[in-house]
């Protein structure tokens, strides 16, 4: 990523913090899956559990936010180090990708939570 050294240091910190959040989220997510698939699973069953559940919605919103912060910073690294991209190109591409994660992720949460 470009920008001042202070920004670069801050991005590094955000990536660390979002990684910690993601770590917890993934564990909870796996537990939820394992719990949910016991005794078969159908779309109707899932929606019956998720629709109107604010806890479910809040948890997955946090999950989506953390992913939308974490992934673009990591991708910026890869673009810089493996593709040799620098500057604006990296910023634009990774911001767009972050936005994509945010929109599709929140859309999915909305889809299963709001009745």
């Amino acid at each position: 990523m470009n920008g001042s050294v202070a920004t670069q240091a801050r991005l590094w910190l955000w990536q660390r913090v979002s990684a910690m959040v993601l770590g917890v989220c993934v564990l909870v997510h796996l537990a939820v899956i394992i719990h949910a698939v016991r005794g078969g699973l159908s779309a109707a069953e899932i929606l019956a559990r998720t629709q109107g559940s604010w806890a479910f919605g809040a948890f997955y919103t946090v999950f989506v936010l953390a992913a939308a912060v974490h992934a673009p910073i990591g991708l910026a690294r890869i673009a810089e180090e493996w593709l040799g991209w620098r500057g604006l190109k990296v910023t634009v591409a990774t911001h767009l990708f972050g936005l994509l994660l945010l929109v599709t992720g929140l859309r999915a949460v909305y889809g299963v939570v709001v009745p």
Binding site: M1, S4, V5, A6, Q8, A9, L11, E80
Partner: peptide, 11 residues
């Protein structure tokens, strides 16, 4: 610390 921070430095 300012000189070693960022993408050319420790981060």
């Amino acid at each position: 610390l300012g000189a070693v921070a960022g993408d050319a430095g420790c981060h």
